[in-house]
Amino acid sequence: MVAFKGVWTQSFWKAVSGEFMAMLIFVLLSVGSTINWGVEDNLQQADVVRISLCFGFSIVTMVHCFGHISGAHINPAVTIAFVCTRKITLAKSIFYIAAQCLGAITAAGLLFIITPVNVIGTLGVTALNEGLSVGHGLLIEILITFQLVFTISAACDSKHKDKLSTLCIGISVMVGHLFAINYTGASMNPARSLGPAVIIWKWENHWIYWVGPIIGAVCAGAAYDYIYCPDSELKQNFKDALKKATQKTKGKYIEVDDTRSQLDADDLILKAGAIHVIDIDQTERKKAKDSASEILSTV
Rank of each mutant, 00 (worst) to 15 (best):
I25E: 09
F26V: 00
F26A: 07
F26H: 09
F26C: 07
F26R: 04
L29W: 11
L29R: 07
S30R: 05
S30A: 15
V31K: 00
V31I: 15
G32C: 02
S33D: 03
T34L: 05
I35Y: 08
I35C: 07
N36R: 09
N36C: 10
W37A: 11
G38P: 00
G38F: 07
G38A: 11
G38N: 06
G38W: 04
V39C: 06
E40D: 15
E40L: 10
E40T: 03
N42L: 11
N42E: 14
N42R: 12
L43S: 08
L43G: 09
Q44M: 13
Q44R: 10
A46S: 11
A46M: 12
A46V: 08
D47G: 03
V48D: 14
V48A: 13
V48L: 13
V48S: 13
V49W: 06
V49Q: 07
V49H: 07
V49A: 11
R50V: 15
R50T: 15
I51F: 00
L53I: 15
L53R: 11
L53W: 12
L53C: 11
C54M: 15
F55D: 04
G56R: 05
G56L: 10
G56Q: 01
G56F: 04
G56N: 04
F57L: 13
F57C: 08
F57Q: 10
I59F: 06
V60G: 01
V60L: 13
T61R: 06
M62Y: 10
M62W: 10
V63G: 05
H64N: 07
H64D: 04
C65I: 13
F66I: 05
F66H: 08
F66Y: 15
G67E: 03
G67Q: 09
G67R: 05
H68L: 13
H68N: 10
I69C: 03
I69T: 07
S70F: 13
S70P: 12
S70V: 14
G71A: 12
G71N: 12
G71V: 14
A72S: 14
H73E: 13
H73W: 09
I74Q: 04
N75G: 02
N75L: 02
N75D: 06
P76D: 06
A77Y: 01
V78P: 02
V78R: 01
V78Q: 03
T79Y: 07
I80M: 01
F82W: 05
F82I: 14
V83W: 04
V83E: 00
V83S: 01
C84Y: 01
T85D: 03
